[in-house]
Write a protein that binds this DNA or RNA. Structure first.
Lengths: 189, 189
DNA sequence: CACATGATGTCGCGCCGTGACATCACGCTA
DNA sequence: TAGCGTGATGTCACGGCGCGACATCATGTG
């Protein structure tokens, strides 16, 4: 029998998610989260750098996975296409299931502090994408633009996908947005 | 003679900027900022909701100004063009001068906490743009995409503009990025 | 059986941000 | 001129966040 229960990090994540949904992010203290997970406050901060980050524990793996896809993509002659394709083909259903993602998204959207963290995580991904594209020979300015626009386009699609019924097709949504983008990018300019 | 010096907010802003540049954002406490501005800590929080926001005091005016431009734009048949054009024509030199903006940008870029705040301010602008475009009859999904992509494109250009010599032309840079975007948006898809 | 390991607890601290109340120069009005 | 309201600031107390330092103790390893 171990001296303590196993899986403190998982219990903390679950406790935090529950409390954030029950009483909101601001009205939940780290002390409460830790108590529900049956550990001390200090232990919380050993697993997560701050209160917000408990909702973003998987983001490093996500970023690494996406970057690997870009790095291994067959061709990057059209970097925007490469990025959106790589992100679309990612196995999002492995991120805890649709409803888990919906709940997480709802909590984030309801709290500016969490939204800030979400945005910078996306920005981190964009920065890494930019670097990989440049390594693969894409013009620096084009790489940065493609990374940023690609991320915006994809996560816009991702939101719609989460909001849609379970049988919605993510690829179809990204494809639709790509068409819309093509229709509003000034062709002649 | 007033009981206190006038312009506490301005003194706080300047003191904060000085200290952030001298010793960094994290190593500067609100107590120090307030002391240099010759007020108490409590007064700091009467002018700014939190420590980060002291660098974003002008952002509300910026957002309002940009939104007004979108609202008054002659035509929105190409929302992406409308947005980028409106932002490009904004009087950025009125925001305190190039060097002030460069210093501000440098401080923000050096601190993730400030970058988070910067990103959510951009996001706020995107949300408002989306609303205005929809009011003006743009399809909801297209409006959101155009707002987000337009903001990314413009601020990417803005960064380059700040990094460039003083005689650089912002419109030329945004135009260049628009061309690059046109070249990587899959035409046939 | 002794010891290193590693996760957790305990304690103290500085900083952030806020509510409540006090202070007091200024301007207005009788 | 005396009085009064206003508004910016100060003062105080407090809860929450996040971290450094050290103690505790089950496990497993020799």
């Amino acid at each position: 029998m171990p001296r303590w229960e196993l899986g403190s990090a998982d219990r903390l994540k679950q406790a935090a998610m529950e409390l954030f949904r029950e009483k909101g992010f601001e009205d939940t203290s780290v002390v409460e989260i830790a108590a529900r997970a049956r550990v001390t406050t200090r232990t919380f901060f050993r697993y997560f750098p701050d209160k917000r980050d408990v909702l973003f524990a998987e983001s490093e793996g996500l970023r690494a996975g996406l970057v690997a896809r870009i790095r291994q993509a067959e061709d990057v002659t059209n970097p925007l296409h490469t990025i959106v394709r790589a992100m679309t083909e990612f196995d999002w259903d492995a991120m805890g299931g649709r409803d888990v993602q919906r709940h997480r998204q709802a909590v984030i959207a309801a709290n500016p502090e969490l939204l800030e963290r979400d945005l910078i995580k996306h920005d981190d991904i964009a920065v890494e994408f930019t670097g990989v594209l440049r390594e693969r020979g894409v013009d620096p300015d084009t790489a940065r633009l493609a990374a940023r626009v690609g991320i915006q386009l994809f996560f816009t699609a991702y939101e719609s996908w989460l909001a849609a019924p379970d049988d919605a097709d993510l690829a179809a949504i990204t494809g639709d947005l790509m068409s819309r983008l093509a229709s509003i990018v000034p062709i002649g300019a």
